[in-house]
Structure formats: C-alpha cells, structure tokens
C-alpha cells in the first residue's frame, strides 16, 4: 500500500498556503498535510489521492497553546501530545485533559494535531466532541479573508465540514469555564473501544458545574460515534440544570438520549449495540463529572 504520486510543498507561512490553495486548478487536488495520522493512511489505501500536498508542519504560526484569562487559543498544527503536556491545561480545559489520553496512541499523538482531528470530523473522535461541548470555534483563512466558525456549525456529516477547499484552519479557540463564586467544576469521559486507543465505538463526555449547595448550574454533555457528527445533548443537560444530581435524575436525563442519536452499524458494532452503550457511557461520564466536582475545592 503506497500513496499515489504527488507534488510536495513545504511553505513557511500561512499566506503561502493560502496562495497555493487559491491557485489550485480543477485538475489538481491540493490538500493540506498536518500530522498525517489520518490523511497518510487514507493515501496509502488510495482512498485519498491528492495531486499536490502542502505540508504545514513547519509553519511556526500554526503551533502553540496560549492560555488567556477566558479562553485557550490552540494553533491548528499543535501536536495532540504538546497540548496534553501543556502546564495549566487541566485547570483551564479539564475536559480536554481528560479526553486527550484516549486519542490514539502516544506514537500517533506525537504527530497528530488538534486542528487536523477537528477538520477530519470523525464522529467518533474525541477532540471534535470535547471542542463542540465547550463551545469552541475555529478560525479559517483564505487568500485575503478569514472567518470564525463555531464548532457547532462546522460539521456537516461524517468527515465533512463547511471548510472550503481554498481555506486552511489556523487556530482553535476554546472558552474556559471560570465558574461562579463558590462553585465547582467537574468532568467525565468514557469510551468503548476494542483496544485502548483504537477508534471508539461510542464515547460520552460531560462537564458539570455545581453551586455551593451542590445544585447543577451548568452542564455540557455529549456523545460521539452515535450519529453522523458528534452530538451535544441539550435535553439531558436541561434535565440536570437546577437539580442536585442523583442517580435517579441522571437516569431520567439519559432516557432522553435514545431519541436524539442516530447510530450506524459498522464492522465493529451494530447500531443496536451503540444504542445500548451510549446512554450507559453517558451515565458514567455524568456521574464521574459530578463526583469530580464534589471533590474539588470551591472557586
């Protein structure tokens, strides 16, 4: 399994990338190469056959993590492993810190990028799911223009996004939950995979804020691998907000899930199986998030 032939370019600025992408003629397929952990296997299997590859790995402006007061800005080509090891990540984006160890294996996290995972839009991937739940947004550049797209508007379907062929993602911005006075924030993440680090059959993530009395005042809950895109579960969130989470009301909340998901049958698992595990994974993620919040000292 070898890739088809292609021309290789290694620009050192985003402007150069935009120029290449803008000049692409109809016979050529220009593609951006970031960490290569998805694109290169697809090329090896000839499922992708770009004629021109633009390697963005050496563009300094696309690397780096900046933790500001209210948000974290992540360069699109930042390695997953670099983000995982960023000091302060667990405080600023605890759900990312919790989910990142589930992303592939450490050999792949050393190359795989944050932007690449989001752009690839795999419904069962961890990074798109947590970026969606935390109300993240991506900045896209094209020659002479740029735009910001909230993650909730980014995914169109399996491996399909609103990113245009002339556009390149330059950064991902994720708001930090700072928490009301006296409140506590907790996170949970669970997934089901045949082997640790493999593609998840289904996954669930939750970030919960409890006030000083233990009442849930904010919740972000969602699942992956159970529909064409990662899914945020607003109904389940609404049933928990204003409540002190208990086994009983968590059960009520997860009963809303079945109507929301639309899983496919694949080689790894049937749609029915996904329907069974998805609420249970969500229960575990919520329960973990509540326990995690309760164990924290108030903000």
């Amino acid at each position: 399994m070898k890739s088809a032939e292609f021309e290789y370019f290694r620009p050192s600025s985003v402007d150069e990338v935009c120029t290449y992408l803008a000049n692409g003629d109809s016979d050529a397929e220009w593609k951006v190469l970031a960490g290569g952990q998805t694109l290169v296997p697809l090329m090896a299997m000839r499922l992708a056959r770009p004629t021109h590859l633009i390697d963005i790995n050496r563009i300094d402006a696309l690397h780096g993590v900046e933790i500001a007061a209210d948000r974290v800005v992540i360069g699109a080509a930042t390695r997953q492993r670099v983000l995982e090891r960023t000091p302060g990540l667990a405080d600023a984006l605890p759900l990312f810190a919790k989910a990142l160890p589930h992303v592939g294996h450490f050999q792949t996290r050393n190359r795989g990028t944050i932007g690449g995972s989001i752009a690839h839009a795999d419904s069962s991937a961890e990074i798109p799911l947590v970026a969606l739940l935390l109300d993240g947004a991506v900045t896209l550049h094209r020659k002479g223009a740029s735009r910001i797209v909230p993650i909730r508007d980014l995914f169109l379907g399996p491996m399909e996004t609103v990113i245009e062929p002339e556009e390149i993602m330059v950064s991902v911005e994720v708001p930090i939950w700072r928490g009301a006075a006296g409140s506590k924030i907790g996170v949970g993440f669970h997934e089901m995979a045949p082997r640790k680090g493999d593609f998840a059959i289904a996954s669930a993530a939750a970030q919960i804020e409890l006030d000083a009395n233990g009442v849930c005042i904010r919740a972000a809950i969602g699942v992956g691998g159970c529909g064409p895109t990662p899914l945020r579960l607003h109904d389940a969130e609404a049933l928990l907000i204003g409540q002190t989470p208990t086994d009983a009301n968590i059960t009520t909340a997860i009963q809303t899930i079945d109507a929301k998901i639309d899983p496919d049958s694949t080689l790894q698992a049937s749609a029915d199986y996904r329907r069974r595990v998805c609420p249970e994974l969500t229960r575990r993620a919520i329960t973990d998030a509540v326990t995690d919040a309760q164990s924290k000292s108030p903000s």
Partner: peptide
C-alpha cells in the same frame, strides 16, 4: 524516534 519522540514511520513521508 523523531527528534526523540516515538512516531509511526509509515505515516510520515521521508521528505517531511
């Protein structure tokens, strides 16, 4: 190991 970090050498082109 690429600059000390383990990676999969089948997922990277030599020119990179």
């Amino acid at each position: 190991l690429l600059d000390g970090d383990p990676i999969r050498a089948c997922l990277m082109f030599a020119v990179q």
